[in-house]
C-alpha cells in the first residue's frame, strides 16, 4: 500500500545551518546597496538646490547618529561586496584553452578593479576640492 507522507518545509529553515544564515545576511545587506544609491540621489538633489542647501545637508550628515548609521551601512555593503566577489567565479567560467582560470584569479581581479576604481574616485574628489 502506498501512502506517501508529506512534510511541510520549516519556516525557520534559515536558522538551521550557518550557511543558510550567511545567505540571508548576504541578501539582507543588499538593502544597503539600494539605500546608498537612494542617498546619492538625495545628495545630488540637495546639490542641485544650491551650495547652502548642500552645506546644510552635509552638516546634518556629520551628526553622530547619521555617522553611526552610515558606518553600519558601509560594513554591510563591504560584506555584500565580499560575498558577491567570492561567488563570481561560479558565474564566470573563464577558460584559456583547456584550462580553467583559477577562482582566486577571478576574485583577485575584482578586488584589484575595486581598489583602482576607488582610488580614481577619491583622486577626483580631491581634485574637485
Amino acid at each position: 500500500m502506498r501512502r506517501p507522507y508529506h512534510r511541510s518545509y520549516p519556516k525557520d529553515w534559515w536558522l538551521r545551518h550557518p550557511h543558510y544564515r550567511r545567505f540571508m545576511l548576504r541578501e539582507l545587506t543588499s538593502v544597503f546597496v539600494a539605500y546608498f544609491a537612494f542617498w546619492t540621489i538625495c545628495l545630488l538633489f540637495q546639490a542641485s538646490r544650491g551650495p547652502e542647501q548642500l552645506a546644510a545637508f552635509l552638516t546634518t550628515m556629520r551628526k553622530p547618529g547619521w555617522l553611526i548609521w552610515h558606518a553600519i551601512g558601509l560594513l554591510a555593503v563591504l560584506f555584500h561586496t565580499y560575498t558577491w566577489f567570492e561567488t563570481a567565479p561560479k558565474v564566470l567560467a573563464v577558460r584559456i584553452g583547456e584550462k580553467r582560470v583559477p577562482d582566486r584569479v577571478i576574485v583577485g581581479a575584482q578586488w584589484v578593479a575595486f581598489v583602482v576604481v576607488a582610488a580614481v574616485f577619491f583622486a577626483l574628489l580631491r581634485l574637485a576640492g
Binding site: 550557511h19 543558510y20 545567505f23 561567488t87 561560479k90 558565474v91 567560467a93
Partner: peptide, 24 residues
C-alpha cells in the same frame, strides 16, 4: 536564488550552483 548549498553537499563536486548561474 543562489543559496549555493547544493554545491556544498554534492558528493561528486558537480557544483550545480555554478551550472545554474552559468545557465542564467
Amino acid at each position: 536564488t543562489f543559496v549555493g548549498e547544493c554545491s556544498e553537499v554534492c558528493p561528486k563536486h558537480v557544483d550545480p550552483a555554478a551550472a545554474i548561474q552559468q545557465g542564467k
